[in-house]
Design a protein around this nucleic acid. Structure first.
Ligand SMILES: [Mn+2]
Ligand SMILES: [Mn+2]
Ligand SMILES: [Zn+2]
Ligand SMILES: [Zn+2]
Lengths: 139, 139
DNA sequence: ATATAAATGAAAACCTTTCTCATTTACACC
DNA sequence: GGTGTAAATGAGAAAGGTTTTCATTTATAT
């Protein structure tokens, strides 16, 4: 049960938090905006305010339950944290998101930070492009 | 003279465009937000509206005179285009920006896009961290 | 059950960026 | 050098995603 997940990270067990967690765990799309989550809640019959959705997602991020991607167009999407770091490919046509891991890139990033005297705290890498399906549909 | 630079890219020579170009060429900080440029203009005694600064910077970008970076916090910064693609390291303390080029990373990105069937149109890579100076100051 | 601190909903505020529209300006032409 | 016309500008409004405010509701410790 998710109640324990919430208590484990020091959050009180409330209906909005349980429902948001449920959405994230059961929805087919792994990457969701706050608006996506909000709409999914409405469809589910839960009248939870958008402000609360934002608050809950931000708390989840702080608690390490979800991570937030900041897409170029000033739009954030959230995904359940699974412990494995990965980066993203984004289709500029259909907005589909794919994930990838590349240890060579990770390594080079660490080397560059070191070279420049930076203590790396984070990094973000997005590859933008046109996905296979969109390229077939028409170009 | 910059007038010719503007004509070369098909832009009429106007005072706002000349002054914005002058700021970008003479300021010590290579990476500037629209607000930064706007303030620099005010200090220079030029009363150019912020909307115009945004318009001019966007036109310059379209013309290939400047490039725009989208930083994580939904903030854009502009820099004079010098023809060489590069990526950025950002200090999360003092917001200093450093640049780097890494052909290994560039190559891997192309390979990943290919692997996933994406036609890459762009990519953005930011390494966040604490710069050398900020680490010395106190940690 | 009760008290208390925390969480919520609704709406307003925020912040950066873009748009609207009346006014000004650049530049081609005479 | 004037003139006409389309383009550029400034001020402010609007946009759009996100955060804040504040009165009300809720979770949890006692
Ligand atoms: Mn992901
Ligand atoms: Mn740069
Ligand atoms: Zn696509
Ligand atoms: Zn620093």
């Amino acid at each position: 049960m998710e109640s324990q997940d919430l208590r484990n990270v020091g959050l009180k067990v409330t209906l909005p938090r349980l429902k948001v967690l449920e959405i994230l765990e059961t929805t087919k799309q792994r990457h969701m905006s706050a608006e996506d989550v909000y709409k999914a809640l409405l469809e589910m019959g839960e009248e939870i305010g958008l402000a609360t959705v934002y608050r809950v997602l931000t708390q989840f991020q702080g608690a390490g339950l979800v991570s937030r991607l900041s897409i170029d167009d000033g739009h954030a999407v959230f995904e359940l944290e699974d412990g494995t770091h990965h980066d993203h490919l984004l289709c500029v046509r259909c907005h589909q998101i794919e994930e990838f891991i590349d240890e060579v890139i990770e390594q080079r990033q660490r080397a560059i930070a070191l070279e420049k005297g930076f203590e790396m705290t984070d990094h973000s890498l997005y590859i933008y492009g046109i996905c296979q399906k969109c390229r077939q549909d028409k170009d």
